[in-house]
């Protein structure tokens, strides 16, 4: 079965909804997680095709989740799109992600980019 899951890890209700809509429009199944600790647990259970990752999260920081994705063998193929309001943070982790968006991230940007990724696989 084709992996079509997109995990949207973002604590802001509105933004997480918008990101989810964008990824749905790009053809993904989406799941929203608004808490770092919950995301940490969820990543032990599933290996999504793509993760939209905010760096500022409650309980467990985005950087911890990023290193979990990059070191956990089952998650090796996961594509990460970092979405952060902090350009410095974005700079720091730019190399570990497929793409880093510094907020504002527009609906169409995210939709078009992730759609291209989905079609490339």
């Amino acid at each position: 079965m084709e992996n079509n899951l997109a995990l949207i890890i973002e604590d802001d209700v509105d933004l997480s909804n918008i990101f989810a809509e964008a990824l749905r429009a790009a053809g993904f199944e989406t799941e929203i997680i608004r808490d770092g600790a919950v995301a940490q647990q969820r990543l032990k259970e599933v290996a999504p095709y793509i993760v939209i990752l905010d760096m500022h999260l409650p309980h467990v920081d985005g950087s911890v989740l990023l290193s979990q994705i990059r070191t956990d063998p089952p998650l090796q193929k996961v594509k990460v799109v970092i979405v952060t309001a902090d350009a410095i943070m974005g700079d720091m982790y730019r190399e570990q992600a497929e793409l880093t968006f510094v907020k504002p991230v527009t609906f169409t940007q995210l939709r078009d980019f992730t759609e291209r990724m989905r079609l490339q696989k």
Partner: peptide, 14 residues
């Protein structure tokens, strides 16, 4: 300021 502005933008786009 960015986060709410981003949300406004996102909803308008949608």
């Amino acid at each position: 300021l960015r986060t709410p502005l981003n949300a406004i933008m996102g909803y308008a786009e949608m």
